[in-house]
């Protein structure tokens, strides 16, 4: 049984967390705007959202902003990022003609290129990781040996 009292406190909790998330998103929105302003003032091709990202990182690093002031809203935005892609990708319908005639070539290009990118990135990262791992274990062995000697 849910008493009206419990129901009321549940409603209040939900409302409070909704307001908190909206406020946190507003902070992030503000940072994006500041980033946009920086980008405009510097006349760079670097988009404003990137300046906003760097600004937020620095503010967190220097403890001007606390992580919990933005974490819930920010993580919600990251988690549901796919949703924000939807309206702009619906724009594909205005390129129906293009997709009908060159869709296959586009698909081949993207799939092949993605495979190349993954091959390059994966093998390089894995090889460096292996090399450094070997280096580390060698150093450890060396360290152990010198400790035994002394």
């Amino acid at each position: 049984m849910v008493t009206p009292m419990q129901h009321w406190s549940w409603m209040r909790q939900k409302t409070v967390s909704f307001v908190v998330i909206v406020l946190q998103i507003a902070i992030l929105y503000g940072l994006a705007d500041v980033g946009g302003l920086i980008s405009k003032l510097l006349h760079t091709p670097v988009p404003g959202s990137i300046f906003g990202l760097m600004l937020l990182f620095l503010l967190l690093q220097f403890r001007v902003l606390k992580l919990e002031w933005i974490a819930r809203g920010g993580e919600l935005l990251i988690r549901e990022m796919l949703l924000f892609f939807v309206p702009s990708s619906v724009g594909i319908m205005t390129y129906g003609h293009l997709m009908l005639h060159e869709g296959l070539q586009i698909l081949v290009t993207i799939v092949t290129s993605t495979a190349i990118v993954m091959l390059v990135t994966g093998t390089i990262a894995d090889n460096i990781w292996n090399a450094r791992q070997r280096h580390r274990s060698q150093r450890m062995a060396h360290h152990d040996a010198s400790e035994v000697a002394s």
């Binding site: 404003g48 959202s49 924000f84 619906v90």
Partner: peptide
Amino acid sequence: YHTYLASGKWLTDMLSPATVALAIPLYRNV
């Protein structure tokens, strides 16, 4: 699409704060 986007752009606008929010995983996993 034009009519749809007039309304849908409210969602697209959330992409910039979402990009800014990527600083959170960066900060957590530095």
